[in-house]
């Protein structure tokens, strides 16, 4: 026998020790290498998403190492349909672990160009390389020129600091 399920309503998620650099973009995977010189900007949200913008006006999206650790083993990733138009803050997919499902939200408005189909057969890429091979979607950013002025987008340093302050 076993007692009432509280687990499912809980995000049981305190990650003890993290190295500073773990939420940085992987330099060897597509979100970085898509442009020969790397992305033009990498931004984070306080909901633990990242965005890697490139000079052609598209951006890769994914979840941070912190979020991937907190979720635990990814068992399924619900991917967005191509050409879907989404506003900033709208859910574009979800990441499931054994215990829970968490939606992932668009950091900025845009249109889905492609989803990372490798996640269908290898959802664990979310855990092994969340800021690289575990990217979830690539979007065409609606207003690529106003990225720096957009509210709610953090630099890596600001994001890491916000994690520390939360502790």
């Amino acid at each position: 026998m076993f007692s009432r399920a509280l687990l499912r309503t809980v995000n049981p998620l305190r990650i003890s020790i993290r190295a500073q650099s773990t939420n940085a973009l992987s330099k060897t995977a597509l979100p970085f290498t898509y442009s020969p010189s790397g992305p033009s900007a990498v931004k984070y949200t306080n909901q633990h998403e990242w965005l890697a913008a490139h000079s052609d006006g598209t951006a890769f999206l994914g979840i941070t190492k912190y979020a991937a650790d907190a979720l635990g083993d990814a068992t399924y990733v619900e991917l967005p349909e191509k050409e879907t138009q989404l506003e900033a803050g709208e859910a574009y997919g979800s990441v499931e672990s054994v215990k829970s499902a968490s939606e992932v939200y668009q950091p900025v408005s845009g249109e889905i160009m492609e989803a990372n189909n490798n996640l269908e057969s290898q959802p664990q890429l979310i855990n092994t390389d969340p800021l690289g091979d575990g990217w979830i979607a690539r979007i065409k950013i609606a207003e690529p020129d106003s990225l720096e002025s957009q509210e709610g987008l953090l630099s890596l340093e600001q994001y890491e600091r916000s994690l520390k302050e939360d502790e």
Partner: peptide, 26 residues
């Protein structure tokens, strides 16, 4: 032992331990 302690049925209980994911523990 690195237990990630959460409230459960009025107790502070470990949900997973550091270094072993849920699936590895299972």
């Amino acid at each position: 032992l690195g237990g990630n302690m959460v409230p459960f049925a009025g107790y502070s209980m470990p949900v997973v331990y550091k270094g072993q994911s849920h699936i590895e523990s299972h």
